[in-house]
Structure formats: structure tokens, C-alpha cells
Design a protein around this nucleic acid. Structure first.
Length: 156
DNA sequence: TAGGCCATCTGGTCCT
DNA sequence: AGGACCAGATGGCCTA
């Protein structure tokens, strides 16, 4: 007894126009300025090592702009004149560390999104779905699979 | 050139 | 106090 199972097609899954041009992965990375080494780095490399790299990058950037403090710091300094020099340094350090953590967090989020891209239909090694496309497609895919499941159960 | 997509920075809020 | 999370702002790059 064969049930009428919904056909799994790209057009039924994609909530967006299939013809939408999607840039190749490498090109996208060039676009976004992500270093390919960040994404393609071997998984066995520890997160700590990556964090150290990120922090080092930030320190370099900070040194480059040493000529003048960032706007947020100047603002804060003027608003809270009572802030001692050491306290200001501490605030600055905490901001830098928070930025690094935030960057790390977003990288984790992007890695999870990449994993999702690989299990969703439409996945291509040469064409990368955008974030929003990936999420919409995943939602539609889950919906379709649950439809298939419920259809099968009715036939039992 | 406008619009889309993205990474990053930042300050606010909540939680431990 | 400090970390996680979030949303807004910003700027860079690419394509139509």
C-alpha cells in the first residue's frame, strides 16, 4: 500500500526563489572579509588557541588605533570623569575581551549554521545559502518531513 | 548606484 | 563583577 507522499522538491522546500543567485562559498568569504582559515581550520585545533588568535588580532587593531581612543571610550571618559586611569584601563580591557567573546560566539553560531546548510536539501558545495535562506529552508524541510511522517502513520 | 549579505563593535539586559 | 545573549549601528564587498 503506497501512500501519497508529498513530493520532496526544491521548490516546495525553498521559501524563496530558486533562481536567486547565490555566490560561491569562497567568493562569499572574500565578500564578508572572513578569513578562510577561520572556517576551514582543523577541528582538532583547540578553541583556546583560536581565542588567543582572535585576542591577538584585536590587540593589533587596538595598537593601530592607539593615536586616539575609540569614540566609546572617549565618551565614557568624559561622562564619568571620576574614572581613574587604572579603572579606565580596566574598562577598556573588558570591552576588548567582550568583543572577542562576542566574535567567538558569532563564529559558533555561524558554524552551527554551516552544519545546518549541510543537512538541508539544496546544499551545494559551490553555492552557499544565505543565513535567512538556510533558516527558511530548514523550517520548510522539517515541516515536510513531519507531513510525510503523519501521512505514513495514517496508512498503518 | 541601490540593495543584499555579512562581520564586527557596542551598550543594554539578564543571569550566576 | 563578569559572562552570555541580543539588537542596533556601521562599514565593506558584491551583484543587478
Amino acid at each position: 500500500m503506497q501512500a501519497s507522499v508529498p513530493t520532496l522538491t526544491q521548490s516546495s522546500l525553498c521559501g524563496f526563489s530558486v533562481g536567486t543567485p547565490v555566490l560561491p562559498t569562497v567568493q562569499r568569504h572574500a565578500v564578508s572579509g572572513i578569513r578562510l582559515t577561520e572556517i576551514d581550520r582543523a577541528p582538532e585545533e583547540s578553541l583556546d588557541t583560536r581565542r588567543e588568535d582572535e585576542l591577538r588580532d584585536v590587540e593589533v587593531k587596538e595598537e593601530e588605533s592607539e593615536a586616539g581612543d575609540p569614540a566609546w571610550l572617549r565618551r565614557r571618559a568624559s561622562q564619568k570623569k571620576k574614572l581613574s586611569h587604572s579603572r579606565l584601563d580596566r574598562v577598556r580591557l573588558r570591552r576588548i575581551e567582550a568583543n572577542a567573546r562576542e566574535r567567538h560566539r558569532m563564529h559558533g553560531l555561524n558554524n552551527a549554521l554551516d552544519s545546518l546548510r549541510k543537512v538541508v536539501p539544496c546544499y551545494s558545495k559551490t553555492q552557499k545559502l544565505s543565513k535567512i535562506e538556510t533558516l527558511r529552508l530548514a523550517k520548510n524541510y522539517i515541516w515536510l518531513l513531519s507531513e510525510i511522517l503523519s501521512t505514513d502513520q495514517k496508512d498503518i
